[in-house]
Structure formats: C-alpha cells, structure tokens
Amino acid sequence: MLSALSLFRAEDGEFSPPSIFEFYPEIVAFAGTPFAINRIMMIRLIVMVLLIVIFWLWTAKFNKAVKTGNVVPGRFQLLGELALNFVRKSIAHDQLGEKDGDRFLPLLTTIFFMVFGMNITGVIPFANIAGTSVIGIPLVLAGVAYVTFIYAGTKKHGIRFFKNSLFPSGVPKPFYILVTPIELLSTFILRPVTLALRLLMNMIAGHLLLVLCFSATQFFFFQADGLLSLFGVGTLLFGFAFTLFEILVSVLQAYVFTLLTTVYIQLALADEH
C-alpha cells in the first residue's frame, strides 16, 4: 500500500502538490472485471470486516458476562458499552425518546460506526485515505437515511406525511405556489444530497491537506537546498497538528451524520404530520 509520503512527485527538483487523481488509485485486484478493487475499495472491505469482528467480540463477551454473572466488564467490553451507550443515549434517546430511539437504534449504530470506521482510515499508516473520500459510501448512507425517514413518516402518518410536508398547515393557499416547491426541494431532494456532500467534502479536504503537509515535508528535507530545508520542520509540525484535527473531524462527521439522520426521522414522526 502507498503511504501519504509516497504520493508526491518531485520533477526536476520542483514540488508537485497532491491532486484529485489520488482518489482514483490503480486497480490492485480483479482488473478488467466488474469486481475490480482499488486501494480505497480494499480499505472499505477491511473496515467492514473489522467492524463485524469487533461487534461480534463485544456481543460474545457481553453474553458470557451475563451467563457467568460477572458484572465487572473488562476494558474491551467497557469500551464497547461506552461507545454503544453514546449512540443510544446521546443521539437516539435524546432525539427520538426511548421507544422510537430503541426502534431505530440498530440503524443509527451502524451508520455511526461505519462512518467513523471509514473516516479514521485517513490517518492510519499504509491506508492514508478515508473510505468515505469517494462518493460511493456517503451516497449509500445518505440513501439509507433518506429511505428511513420516509418510511418512518409514512408508517406513522400514511399518505398525510407527504401532504403535510408539502402543504404545511397555517399557510394561506395562494402561498403554496411558493412554499410547496421549496418544501419539496429542501425535504425530499436536498437532505440526502447535503448529507452525502458534507461527509465527502470533509474527507477529501482532510486527505489533501495531510498529503500536502507530509509531501512538502519530504520535499523540503530531501529535495530542497540550503535554508529551505528548515521549512520541513514547520510542515512536519503542521502535518501532525492536522492529523490530530482529522481524528477529531472523523468523530464529528460520524456524530453529525448520525444526528442529522435521527433529526430527520424525528421530524417525520412529529405529530404535526
């Protein structure tokens, strides 16, 4: 696998900055078939397998603790309980209440950990790119959120969900000419688009920023002459600082994506529909 430092080129001693083509890596397996796998797809598959294994281990340890009556969790089990309770209480229950929160908890938990797992690979050595930095995963997750909030609304309110969303009560009828297209655009079109693009653009920007810092560090240390090499110290420090910031962004984007999905479901379940 390529590291971030190997993603820069110095031609004739000149620095070549990272480009958008880094999000189109070479095929590493099954080239020429519909199942072709590049580095980003491989990262996604690895993250998916790791998440399944981690949740299986958490579940196994929890079931074992229940059977043996051991109420003192180990560190690994405690970490799992804290992470799951964060999604359950801080997101699902806060927005939807206990009944509806537990009802949609499996979906919200999957979204949170999937987004976080795909995001954090952007700062992991030998991966160095987020699985969400290409539109596929953000689009799929946004589509799932979109279908879920429509399902929640129609399940509770039936066809009135669409009627009340597009024709809100209390608005004079002539104003529906303006209000209805706006509601259609904001509620049923822009929601999934903004969900996907917010996540995608944050991951693209973070990756390019990190590659720029570390590739510039390599350039200044190994290609630049004289006092210019001292700039490598600054770019290296910026690189480490932005790495910490990118870890924070990875968590925040998982939280924001999950929270907005929950808010959309809550709005669909609201009594005014």
Rank of each mutant, 00 (worst) to 15 (best):
S165R: 06
L184N: 03
T194G: 01
Y151N: 05
I189H: 01
T148H: 09
G136C: 00
M201T: 12
L139K: 13
I159H: 13
L139I: 13
F167R: 15
F161I: 01
L200E: 03
V134R: 11
Y146F: 15
S133H: 03
F214M: 09
N164I: 09
Y146A: 13
L166N: 06
N202P: 06
E183A: 10
L210Q: 11
K173F: 02
V193Q: 06
E183N: 13
A205N: 06
A145Y: 07
A152D: 02
S165K: 07
H157G: 11
V144D: 12
I150W: 08
C213F: 06
A142W: 09
R160N: 15
G158H: 01
F214W: 10
R160K: 12
T194M: 13
V134N: 05
N128M: 00
N164H: 14
M201D: 08
T180Y: 05
T187P: 02
R191W: 09
R198E: 13
C213W: 05
S186G: 02
P172V: 08
F167A: 08
S186P: 06
L185F: 09
H157M: 00
P168S: 08
I159F: 15
A196Y: 03
L197F: 15
P192F: 11
K173S: 10
L141W: 08
L141I: 14
V179E: 02
L139F: 15
S186I: 09
L209D: 11
F167E: 14
K173N: 05
N128K: 03
E183V: 03
L212W: 12
R191Q: 14
I159W: 11
L139Y: 11
P168W: 07
L190K: 15
L210R: 11
L200D: 01
V140L: 14
I182D: 01
L197E: 12
G206D: 09
K155D: 13
V179K: 03
P168Q: 09
A152V: 04
A130L: 12
F149P: 00
V147K: 14
I182L: 05
V211W: 08
T154K: 12
L141Y: 07
L190P: 08
G158M: 13
E183W: 00
G153E: 01
I204T: 08
I177D: 01
V140R: 10
V193Y: 10
I159Y: 09
P181T: 02
F149A: 06
I137V: 14
I159G: 04
P174I: 04
L190S: 09
C213Y: 07
I177N: 07
L141K: 11
P172K: 02
F162K: 04
M201I: 14
T132Q: 04
L208K: 09
V140P: 12
I177Q: 02
L199Y: 10
V144E: 03
L185W: 11
I204L: 05
T187C: 01
V179L: 07
L210M: 07
G206M: 12
I137C: 00
V134W: 01
T148K: 07
S169V: 15
F149R: 04
V140E: 00
G136T: 15
F149M: 04
A152P: 03
L212K: 08
I150L: 04
G143E: 10
K156R: 13
S169K: 15
L184W: 05
N164L: 15
L184S: 01
L209C: 10
G158I: 06
I177T: 12
V147G: 10
V193H: 06
S169W: 09
